[in-house]
Every structure is written in structure tokens, then in C-alpha cells.
Amino acid sequence: MADSVIVEQRERVLVVSLNRPEARNAVNREVSEAIAAAVDELDARDDLCLGVLATTGGTFCSGMDLKAFLAGEDVSLPGRGLAGITRRPPRKPLIAAVEGWALAGGCELALACDLVVAAEDARFGIPEVKRGLVAAAGGLLRLPRRIPRAVAMQLALTGDSLSAADAHRFGLVNELTASGGALAGALALAGRITANGPLAVRVTKEILDSATDRTVEEGFVGQEPLIQAILASQDAQEGARAFAEKRPPQWTGR
């Protein structure tokens, strides 16, 4: 992996950290390629259940590296988007651990994650209009699905930012932590998820991801083959057996 991105495994969790504090963790091509490679590893490995997207240096991400943009660098990946996740997130769950500012593409990275844990002094925003740009990495598509549409509209048109407390109140942020505690909070949340069956976790995310784009009946039809595969899995048998025997389950991911 590139030095601009640090990847480490913590039990069944892959922690992927942007490491460009001198550039407020702005995303250039190198960062996009490195994060894309990391989430591909996350999806490919049976011993990994989910990922955490974090950063170093006290700022989550200031978005696209404007210096790289002005130099003609394409910081997004074809078919995958900014950081390789805004257009095509991983199949397994991803938690954002947000410290400081999550602005523009940085906010869009958080929105591409399934869950957000944020420090109480974090702030979110899509201020692209202030630079004559448009939030094209999913911000305008995902924000009104995560918070009230009128609030999303105001943030997008004014470029104003949203406090972590308000983001939590509106449902964008799942959990708040003290300043400096977002990664620890994200790992604690990850631990509550990895205690569950890994196949069930992945399929649950897959069904939820498409739920708002379908009618309830379409959802039942679409989920049927996924549910049947889960019912036929070794993990489903192990879960029921462990419950009956009053012991922790031993998941195999099969």
C-alpha cells in the first residue's frame, strides 16, 4: 500500500486510514487507488467481516486534492468514484470514523460508508458550490437519503457545514464520541457487528442497500435467493445449535 494510506487488520476488521495530514487528507489518485485495493481485499477475504475508514492528523478528509485536480490528475477511478468507494462501495459493511472536518469529497466518503461514528467536534459539509463546483461524488444523491431533504438542500445550496451533534440528531451519525475517540468508537461498534454471523451480516447489508429503491413486494422477490442461501449455510446451523447449547457460536463464514 502507498504511504498515503495505512492498512491494518484488527481481528476481523480491516482499518484503512488516510495518511496525508499535511494535505488535510485530501484525496489524490494514489489515495484512490490504495483505498480501492484495500476494500477489494476486504471483500475477498473470508476472515474479514467489515472495514473502518479512518484518518490521521485530526481531519477526516478535505475532499478532492485541488492541487492534483489543477495539475490535470484524475483522482477518481472509472466506475468506482472518489477513493474507489463513492460510486461502488464494498460489499461488506464500512464504518467511517470521523475526526475534525469531513468536507466536500470527505463528506461524500463518509456518506459512502454504511455507519458513521464521529467525534463531538466533527463537522460535515458539501461546500462545492463555494468553488463553482458540484458535489458529484454522491453527496447530492446520498445526503437526502440520510437526513431530511430540506436540510440536505440547504447544506448543498449554501455550502454551510453541519455539526456532529446535528448530524447525529438527523441520523447521519450513528454514535458520538469525545474528541479523539472516533476510531475507538468505530472499533467498538465493529466488535458488536463481528460477533454476528459474517454471511448474515453481508447479506443483510446487501438487502438493505437496495431496499429504498424497491417496493416491498419487489424486495421480497429480490431477497428470496439470498435468504435461501443463508438458510442453507453452515453458519445458520451453527447459530441455531449454539443457541440451543447456550454457548457462543463459532462462525466459519460458510
Rank of each mutant, 00 (worst) to 15 (best):
G84W: 12
G81L: 12
C49A: 15
L82V: 06
C49I: 14
L77G: 09
T86F: 02
G63M: 11
A68S: 15
S32D: 11
A37K: 12
K67T: 15
G81T: 13
L48Q: 09
R88P: 00
I95L: 07
I85M: 02
L14Y: 10
M64F: 07
G51H: 09
G100Y: 06
S17F: 01
I85D: 02
F60H: 07
D40Y: 01
A104E: 06
N19H: 13
P21L: 06
G79C: 04
V15W: 02
P89Q: 04
L18P: 00
G58E: 05
L103Q: 10
A96N: 09
K67R: 14
R20W: 02
G63K: 11
N28C: 08
A34P: 00
L53E: 11
R91T: 13
D46K: 14
E108Y: 04
L66I: 14
V52G: 04
V52H: 07
D74C: 00
T56D: 02
E11K: 13
A102W: 03
T55L: 00
L103W: 10
A37F: 01
E41P: 00
K92G: 04
L77K: 10
N19I: 03
E11C: 00
A96P: 00
A34Y: 02
G81I: 12
A97D: 12
D47S: 14
D46R: 15
L14A: 09
R10G: 01
L94F: 08
L14N: 05
A23V: 04
A38G: 03
E8R: 15
N19V: 03
D43T: 08
F69I: 09
G72K: 06
G79D: 13
S32T: 14
D43S: 02
V16K: 05
D43K: 04
R80I: 01
V31T: 11
E41S: 08
F60T: 06
L70K: 12
G63Q: 11
T59E: 13
D65T: 12
G57F: 04
K92Q: 09
D46S: 15
K92H: 08
A68K: 08
E33T: 07
T56I: 00
V39R: 07
D74F: 00
I35K: 09
L82H: 10
L48T: 10
E33F: 01
S76K: 13
E11T: 15
G100M: 06
A104N: 13
T59D: 13
D47H: 11
A104G: 04
V39C: 01
A71I: 01
V16A: 05
D46H: 12
D43W: 02
M64Y: 10
D65N: 15
P21G: 04
L70N: 13
